[in-house]
Design a binder for these strands. Structure first.
Length: 946
RNA sequence: GCCGAAGUGGUGGAAUUGGUAGACACGCUGGACUCAAAAUCCAGUGCUAGCAAUAGUGUGCGGGUUCGAGUCCCGCCUUCGGUACCA
């Protein structure tokens, strides 16, 4: 009898489905446990070996918890809205709904192959109207609430309107996007459109014109976390700042709670740090500067009010609203030219090149609040419009950027900090003594900061203020494949929320997915859809990918509910996610938005917890090796330069940048076969095919004096992705070795939170283990398990393994679990142990890792019920105790000898006994024995002075 | 630059609170079985010296604390991840 997974696995797969083995009920008496995976985007490439890493870990954990007696919710679904499906539709005409369905089917097959214990009756798809009905429903609640800063809670917008009618906005402490005051009379006098505009300043989901990340290539706006290094996360297209009317979510209202509640979470420090970083809290002061000959004041934010006497100029962001007001006629031409120049620069330009200092003088002056001096007001792109107030007071002596700016444009620099008494202090650090600063002279920097907070407050020119890097989340996408906004506008442009019974507002069926003119979504062309609510015009933007993913984990709790997103009972029973497993790539996007939505739903009384994910495990990426040729020279001496990521811009790439190796399909050889030859040689060296993802003719050829062909190879680890053609498919491994082997091998690779390159060279070891495990149950005559009572040694092996595996699963150390199983089986094999009591317990122990082989053996062992419904074995200390223990004898920490002692001896007894032992005596004879250190079970250490 | 994580054999990695470093596996070497191969099994395998027992040495580098340091402290180096004209 040999181990044949291909005979075992399909059988149990269908058996489990038939018996609804993994169905979970909400009315259990058992304690609940919620184990969740970050649901995948069903891409056309299918699952690769990286996806299941986290899924396998969570599946093992879920199965373990089930065997431990918990009612475990372990669901799966699909983040089914998104750009790739729509891009695909534009290219091929296949409708996103269709391609998404196809991809989901494929994902499901692949997932089923691996033997996950998901309760598929709770499956969710964010693109399903029955699901996005509730996404829209939550959006409407966000739209209809504002954030009360005093209560630190979301409140209905109707309360705010009541207040406006009685008192205007006087006495309102709310998160808002403006702070001009109005009275009750002002409010009543406003037109509906004006009222709508005012309310937009308070709503948690609101519309405003702002500078957004516009991606021309994708034809849509992106959120900050969807932009990486100045290009779009999806596709790597350039992104520019553009002023547009957009929906936003007021996540900044929750910023303090999002920051403080991090302390309550069992997340890694790294991840919490990322979130803190993204939130970017900094304490400082806002200050107002009078402007010469102008009625308005200029507001700035600074963390260093102590440096006020070092201020020699001011700088505004180019987009600042005062730019035109402050530009004097003589400087207008120059300023306009500068603004024009700034407009042409994308984010990549601003980031990539060496920091070049640019700016222009407006011609206006601010007045220094203490010295009364005139301070020139400049415009510079290093000041960002969306941080602080978009304007700064420049202190060139103590800020590197201000310093560079001052040097470039010959502006004054006044030294105001003396660090000579603090030799270790770095320049620009908050350490030193203030000089040249009137009443601040001689003060310590820290004291001066505190002093200035009070000073500016008492003078009425400013006050303490906390600033954040976190911005409100851009929530509009000019795309088709997303949730439509349940918002319609009247002829005045006043926004109207649809009523709950009009939900879901479904996407219309479409044939043409090209963006509509004016940077609008394809929906803008579908008049019948836009005008379906008589007289009103529907919003044509759709929600971004993170809309559905911000709350999907709640839907699993009660996935079929048609009256609520989930019932109160379900929400109160399952509460929150106990363990959430997923990649770090969602550290600041999905995880931040989910926390925000969850807190909002908590404020409204829908969910019982303030945080959605108690514990978070970050699985590392499974990477692939990427082979890049560097300095690839051809036989005629010319050098091939290029960069696979952006072939269109290959001309701009520097010599030496890596080129992705490519197998050329439509190779345009400019001269002859020689180039073809060069590539072929390279590829043969690796015995693999590579594909070029662009047109070879766009590479740039450079002359070189040497007539040799050579290259250097750079091997890097990189993300698996379809675009890199390095995807490893799990199905091949499963069909060759079986799902059990695949699961255990992925766990055996190393700690789950670590990134590691995919490599199959160790898989035989795991396969050998499974065969060895199987062979414990059989001999040459077949089934050989017997009922003989196990020996003490056999019990010891079993119980050591139970203890090790139980502890290691709890701390998500699955690779060491696999090692423990291997060691256990090796030992049992050595003892030729085929006793039922041992094997039955071991089989349950192994079940979470290898569900198929254990289920088969469980049946052969004569157990009627599934092994996945068994009770997890508990280890018993009594089996771990040995009669004798071999102690190493160490002298001053160095191992010298061994001594065998009874295991019943206490630490103290050994300490007293040790000097009398013969083989200890010889080490202490003639020496000065200071003391004896006994580590029970580990060692006896003699501390001697020689 | 700043924040975070990590550096251990030829390789992946183990060592849970400071206590025999290298578990478990891959690979490699030798052997058994076989006409042969595959598979399987047995033995060896950090490095240096030695036929060997054994001795010395050894967890990125340099110091320190300790009877004892991969683990703790101080100062560096390297790699990876995040982030950046954030005032």
């Amino acid at each position: 009898m040999h181990y044949h997974p291909e005979n075992i696995e399909p059988k149990w797969r269908s058996e489990w489905i038939k018996n609804e083995l993994y169905k979970v009920y909400n009315d259990s008496e058992q304690p609940k446990y919620y184990v969740l995976d970050m649901f995948p985007y069903p891409s056309g490439a299918g699952l690769h070996v990286g996806h299941p890493l986290g899924y396998i870990a969570s599946d093992i954990f879920a199965r373990f918890k089930r065997l431990k007696g918990f009612n475990v919710l372990h669901p799966m679904g699909y983040d089914a809205f998104g750009l790739p499906a729509e891009q695909y539709a534009i290219q091929t005409g296949v409708k996103p709904a269709i391609s998404t369905e196809t991809n989901i089917k494929r994902y499901r097959e692949q997932l089923d192959n691996i033997g996950f214990s998901y309760d598929w009756s709770r499956e969710v798809k964010t693109s399903d109207p029955e699901f996005y009905k509730w996404t829209q429903w939550i959006f409407l609640r966000l739209f209809n609430h504002y954030y009360d800063n005093t209560l630190q809670k979301a409140r209905p917008i109707s309360e705010l309107i009541n207040h406006f009618e009685k008192n205007g906005n006087i006495g309102i402490e709310a998160a808002n996007s403006q702070d001009s005051m109005f009275t009750a009379q002002d409010w009543i006098a406003k037109s509906p459109k004006e009222k709508d505009d005012v309310l937009m300043n308070y709503r948690l989901a609101y519309r405003k014109t702002g500078y957004v990340n516009w991606c021309e290539a994708l034809g849509t706006v992106l959120a900050n976390d969807e932009v990486k290094d100045g290009v779009s996360e999806r596709g790597g297209h350039p992104v520019e700042k553009k002023a547009m009317m957009q929906w936003s979510l007021r996540i900044t209202a929750y910023v303090e709670r999002l920051l403080n509640d991090l302390n309550t979470l069992e997340w890694t420090d790294a991840l919490k740090a990322m979130q803190r970083n993204w939130i970017g809290r900094s304490e400082g002061a806002k200050m107002f500067f009078n402007v010469s000959d102008k009625a308005f004041k200029l507001e700035i934010f600074t963390t260093r009010p102590d440096t006020i006497f070092g201020v020699t100029f001011m700088v505004l962001a180019p987009e600042h609203e005062f730019v035109s007001l402050l530009t004097i006629p003589e400087n207008k031409a120059e300023v306009d030219a500068y603004l024009e120049y700034v407009k042409t620069r994308s984010d990549v330009d601003r980031m990539s090149e060496a920091k070049e200092v640019t700016g222009v003088f407006t011609g206006s002056y601010a007045i220094h609040p203490f010295t009364g001096k005139r301070i020139p007001i400049w415009i510079g792109e290093y000041v960002l419009i969306d941080y602080g107030t978009g304007a700064i007071m420049a202190v060139p002596c103590d800020d590197e950027r201000d310093n560079n700016f001052a040097k470039k444009f010959n502006l004054d620099i006044i030294e105001i900090i003396d660090r000579t008494e603090y030799p270790g202090a770095l320049p620009h650090s908050k350490i030193g003594k203030i000089i040249n600063s009137d009443f601040l002279n001689g003060m310590d920097v820290q004291d001066a900061i505190a002093f200035m907070f009070d000073k500016i407050k008492s003078m009425g020119i400013g006050e303490k203020k906390v600033n954040y890097k976190l911005r409100d989340a851009n929530f509009s996408r000019q795309r088709y494949w997303g949730e439509p906004f349940p918002i319609a506008y009247d002829s005045e442009g006043v926004s109207n929320a649809l009523s709950d019974d009009q939900l879901p507002l479904e996407l219309p069926d479409l044939d043409d997915f090209q963006p509509a003119s004016g940077g609008k979504s394809p929906l803008a062309r579908v008049e019948s859809w836009i005008d379906q609510f008589n007289g009103l015009t529907l919003e044509t933007d759709t929600m971004p990918g993170f809309a559905g993913s911000s709350w999907y984990f709640l839907r699993y709790m009660d996935a079929d509910n048609t009256n609520e997103f989930a019932s109160k009972e379900a929400l109160n029973y399952w509460k929150d996610v106990d363990v959430y497993i997923g990649g770090t790539e969602h550290a600041v996007g999905h995880l931040m938005y989910s926390r925000f939505w969850h807190k909002f739903l908590y404020d409204l009384g829908f969910v019982p917890t303030t945080e959605p994910f108690k514990k978070l495990i970050n699985q590392g990426m499974i990477t692939a090796y990427g082979y890049y040729a560097e300095n690839l020279r051809l036989e005629d001496g010319r050098m091939l330069i290029g960069n696979s990521c952006d072939l269109a811009n290959a001309d701009n790439v520097n010599v030496g940048s890596p080129i992705r190796l490519a197998y050329i399909t439509d190779y345009l050889d400019p001269q002859g076969r020689i180039y073809q030859q060069a590539f072929t040689e390279y590829f043969n060296a690796f015995g693999k095919d590579y594909f070029v993802n662009g047109d070879i003719s766009k590479y740039h050829w450079v002359e070189d004096e040497k007539g040799e062909f050579y290259f250097t190879v750079n091997i890097v680890q990189e993300k698996m992705s379809k675009s890199k053609y390095n995807v490893q498919n799990p199905d091949e491994i499963v069909s060759r070795y079986g799902a059990d082997c695949f699961r255990m091998y992925e766990m055996f690779l190393g700690p789950i939170e670590q990134s590691k390159p995919w490599d199959t060279k160790g898989i035989d070891g795991v396969n050998r283990f499974l065969r060895k495990y199987w062979s414990l149950y059989f001999d040459e005559n077949g089934w050989s398990v017997n009922d003989i009572t196990p020996t003490a040694e056999e019990y010891k092996i079993l119980h050591t393994t139970i203890r090790k595996v139980t502890d290691d699963i709890e701390r998500f150390s699955f690779n060491t679990c696999v090692s423990a199983f291997m060691m256990c089986v090796n030992e049992l094999k050595r003892l030729e142990c085929n006793k039922k009591e041992i094997l039955n317990a071991l089989n349950i122990l192994l079940a979470p890792f290898a569900p198929f082989i254990t289920e088969e053996l469980n049946q052969l062992l004569g157990n009627k019920d599934s092994v996945h419904k068994a009770s997890y074995p508990i280890y018993d200390e009594k089996y771990l105790i040995l009669d004798t223990v071999e102690y190493p004898i160490c002298v001053n920490g160095k191992k010298r000898d061994l001594v065998t002692l009874s295991s019943s001896l206490t630490q103290k007894e050994i300490q007293e006994l040790a000097p009398t032992l013969g083989n200890v005596k010889k080490y202490i004879e003639g020496k000065d024995l200071q003391r004896i250190i006994v580590v029970p079970g580990k060692m006896i250490n003699l501390v001697v002075k020689s």
